[in-house]
């Protein structure tokens, strides 16, 4: 198998494994707007494809991918303003409506955080280990631990209100 084929296989594997996670991070950044999140996710994977040859395995590949995702969202913020939360889909069954409402509320609450805290909590929501979050953000493990504790409390309180 040649180098180009190897890249294609690796990329397809990364796409399948990380699509949902990257999409959820992007959704968190754009207040749950599905269309914008899809475009952003596509942009993230374009960047992954573009830089894949330069990945040096100094960190886990997932760490590298989440860095690209967060940085792409950060860059996107430069061109965006007041992204509206989409309306819930109609005709859902009762428990689905409750779940949708809770997730919508989460988007709204996450959107109230500054972009650094937003990035940290979106990674925590994906169950990424705190040590890896620290490596993604370029912060110490301790600083991340303290922040997460604080944001968790705030977020839980806000969503459950």
């Amino acid at each position: 198998m040649n180098k180009s084929n190897n890249k294609n296989v690796l990329f397809t594997q990364l796409y399948d494994e990380h699509y949902n996670k990257v999409m959820r991070i992007c959704l968190g950044y754009v207040n749950g707007n599905n269309e914008i999140a899809k475009d952003l996710t596509q942009e993230v994977f374009i960047k992954i494809w573009r830089h894949l040859d330069n990945f040096e395995a100094k960190s886990k590949i997932s760490t590298w991918i989440f860095r690209i995702a967060i940085n792409t969202c950060l860059l996107y913020l430069r061109d965006s303003k007041n992204i509206k939360t989409p309306k819930p889909s109609s005709g859902s069954v009762e428990d689905k409506i409750v779940l949708e409402a809770r997730i919508r509320k989460m988007y709204e609450c996450i959107n109230k955080l500054d972009s650094k805290n937003k990035s940290i909590i979106l990674l925590e929501l994906e169950s990424i280990p705190q040590k890896e979050i620290a490596s993604i953000m370029g912060m110490t493990h301790e600083a991340i631990r303290v922040r997460i504790l604080r944001i968790k409390k705030t977020l839980s309180k806000l969503v459950m209100e």
Partner: peptide, 22 residues
């Protein structure tokens, strides 16, 4: 309550994942 939120959050799946066209 945060663990509940996390589980709700990760429950979001995207069935219409665009097909990958290199």
């Amino acid at each position: 309550s945060f663990e509940d939120l996390k589980s709700n959050w990760q429950g979001q799946k995207f069935e219409n994942k665009p097909t990958l066209d290199l």
